[in-house]
Design a protein around this nucleic acid. Sequence first.
RNA 1: GGCCCGUUCGUCUAGGGGUUAGGACACCAGAUUUUCAUUCUGGUAACAGGGGUUCGAUUCCCCUACGGGCUACCA
Length: 516
Amino acid sequence: MSERRIRTRFAPSPTGPLHMGGVRTALYSYLFAKKHGGDFLLRIEDTDQNRFVPGAEDYIIESLQWCGIAPNEGVGFGNGPHAPYRQSERKAMYKQYADQLVQSGHAYLAFDTTEEMEAIRKNAEANKLNFAYDGATRMSMKNSLSLPADEVKGRIDAGEPFVIRLKVPHDETITFTDLIRGQVSFQSNTVDDKVLLKSDGMPTYHLAHIVDDYLMQITHAIRGEEWLPSAPSHILIYRYLGWEHAMPQYAHLPLLLKPDGNGKLSKRDGDRLGFPVFPLDWTDPATAEKSSGYRERGYYPEAFVNMLAFLGWNPGTEQEIFSLEQLCHAFSFENIHKAGAKFDPEKAKWFNQEYLRAKPATEIAQSIKSDIQHHFDLQDGDTRLSNSFLISAVELLKPRVQFENEMHTVGSYLFTAPTTFDQSVIDKKWKDGCKEFFVALKNELDQLENFSAESTKQLFEEVAAKNNLKPGEVLQLFRVLLSGQAGGVDLFGMIALLGKTEVCSRIEKALVAIAK
RNA sequence: GGCCCGUUCGUCUAGGGGUUAGGACACCAGAUUUUCAUUCUGGUAACAGGGGUUCGAUUCCCCUACGGGCUACCA
């Protein structure tokens, strides 16, 4: 057992876009497998035909790809030795195990209809009670334990639908060791008789994931904390199937919580607070409702993954920026925090900013090129699309943004002359002599041979002195004339970037526009 | 209600029987940038409460409170 090759899996159900909490689960599974040179696989748990959403499976696959945590086996990633990896295609496999449990006396057939169950639950609720199909109630229900054998046979022969339920034992303590929480115990009398096989012949999650994990030789089952209450049922199923020796070790991850208030992070919170909850954009095929994703918001996948890794885990050092490769080495279950983590969108942005800072300007220039071209409607060959122009622009803008896609808005004045001018600055700073100063400055700039940030700055100071102005008195006005805005990138860096012709032209036009 | 899990600055967290309880985000202040941003420096800010155990508990145990999850023929 200790010699087993480490194998983890991510097993989402295709019921909609993958939540970032799901991505984190996938990430941890990936990291753990890679750390130990093992396998990471993707299994699609589509046993609920009613909740199937078209496109969700592709969305999951694309999300994992974008994050750089591609499984080496599974749906969309090439068939391994355990294909198929879609549970709906494995339907025939599950029944025999359910039957085996019935045969060995650890499961039974239940004929109670959905309507009957609803009525019972409703009735219990009306009396402020909670109905559970368990050891205390099963003999008063319609099943192969409570009904005479011939009636059971009759119902089966008549083709009456039934489910198969796990027969949970009386007065046993079910204990297992969770990789994150240590030893966890449950009293079997509080565990209900879970449905293993539905009346349509499909297994429930409880049976299906166990059969598949066993068959696929999964060694570590990593999932959200919401599964902890059903873990005792799962332990029992392994035991009764005779697979306890090969049972994977379970790790129940703390949940991702809302940034404000309480509760699980949900799609609504993203809408309400203005941050993505999903890795990629998603349009609900039924309602056409759109949800935004980290990718489209402008996050680097590396930053997204790094941020996600730190939601509930830490390396035990003070380093926070980790490549995926580094995460693989550093990851361990011991460093997973037990409590749920409130998601902080501000910190998420900070991670992206760190990656932006670290990325070479040449690469960013390449990646924003088409964005710039379309946004400003530039022709091919426009100097503003040249590498040198773009790289300089990126260097000027880099400290001012958290995302590449903010550059064209934050730095719009680098690409197009302003048409409006910050009036408050003009009102505050403009005085007699300013017009003469800017006209003179323009003329001098026009004559300048070596047009650089240094030379223009020097010239600016000289002309100001000649006009009996302190540089500080006209600097911000100068900025407004050139960019329209009160603040912005390094002024003389911007001047050098724009070039003599453009700068002179902007001064002229601005003086006309502000009618001074 | 029942069951299970949890609880260190506003947030993510480190730590661990004796510490000035550390870092990051956010926030505030100062410096630098004759602007803003960046950068740098500094600062505010936390062991839920009560009982034990102990020479000593934030750290171990118990109780309470609070938070979260589950309580479907959904996963």
